[in-house]
């Protein structure tokens, strides 16, 4: 049995933590800086804390935007009539997992005081190039491969280490999607020891 986990569970109270402990620490640091006769340093410290959170929110929102697009893409694939079982079941399962990613990313953005990116009213996909099941699976595999690279490029940027860990958890899931799609296409599911 596979246990369902929430990679962002450690962040459930991050907003509160930053609000209570974070602001407490900020006040202490500000007080220390003011006591040291350096109000400019105190102001800079406060600005830096805010900038860290804003940076994390921007990264999370970009990831959320990509997840929302993936949900729409799998919707197009599943509704195309080109996918037969069991590929159709896979597409719906993967779409469900992208929805879980999107939900938790949106919640985390809110906890950090940001506004989550919303799904676009309309997405552009190369539907004129999707004529067979293999075309749809290949398109999905390309999106998943790109998503792996995107999360890999985002992980080192998070100021909050727990966010980096949670993003790496999503990266692992998307790498599995990519491998399964390659397998379904008759390709080597794991073509290299490293992803880039």
């Amino acid at each position: 049995m596979i246990a369902r986990i929430n990679p962002f569970a450690a962040l459930e109270d991050i907003g509160r933590r930053r609000f209570i402990l974070g602001s407490g620490a900020l006040l202490s640091a500000s007080a220390v800086a003011l006591l040291a006769g350096r109000p400019a340093l105190a102001a800079e410290y406060g600005k830096k804390k805010g900038a860290d959170t804003q940076s994390d929110v921007r990264i999370l929102n970009t990831a959320l935007g990509a997840e929302l697009e993936a949900i729409a893409a799998y919707g197009v694939g599943a509704g195309s009539g080109l996918l037969q079982k069991p590929a159709l079941d896979l597409a719906l399962q993967f779409q469900g997992q992208h929805k879980e990613h999107a939900d938790v990313l949106a919640k985390t953005v809110r906890k950090l005081g940001g506004t989550p990116t919303e799904a676009k009213a309309r997405y552009e996909f190369p539907t004129d190039q999707l004529k067979t099941q293999a075309d749809v699976l290949g398109f999905a595999a390309g999106l998943e491969k790109g998503a792996v690279s995107a999360y890999l490029g985002a992980v080192p940027l998070f100021r909050e280490r727990e966010l980096a860990k949670a993003a790496a958890s999503i990266l692992g899931d998307e790498a599995m999607h990519w491998a399964i799609l390659r397998q379904a296409l008759g390709e080597n599911p794991v073509p290299a020891a490293f992803v880039a």
């Binding site: 935007g65 990509a66 697009e69 999106l143 790109g146 792996v148 995107a150 880039a196």
Partner: peptide, 17 residues
């Protein structure tokens, strides 16, 4: 091959993320 890394968010001919 390196451009594959960009394809989570970008495409040549249309706007995405």
């Amino acid at each position: 091959a390196i451009y594959d890394r960009c394809t989570a968010c970008h495409a040549l001919a249309y706007n995405r993320t």
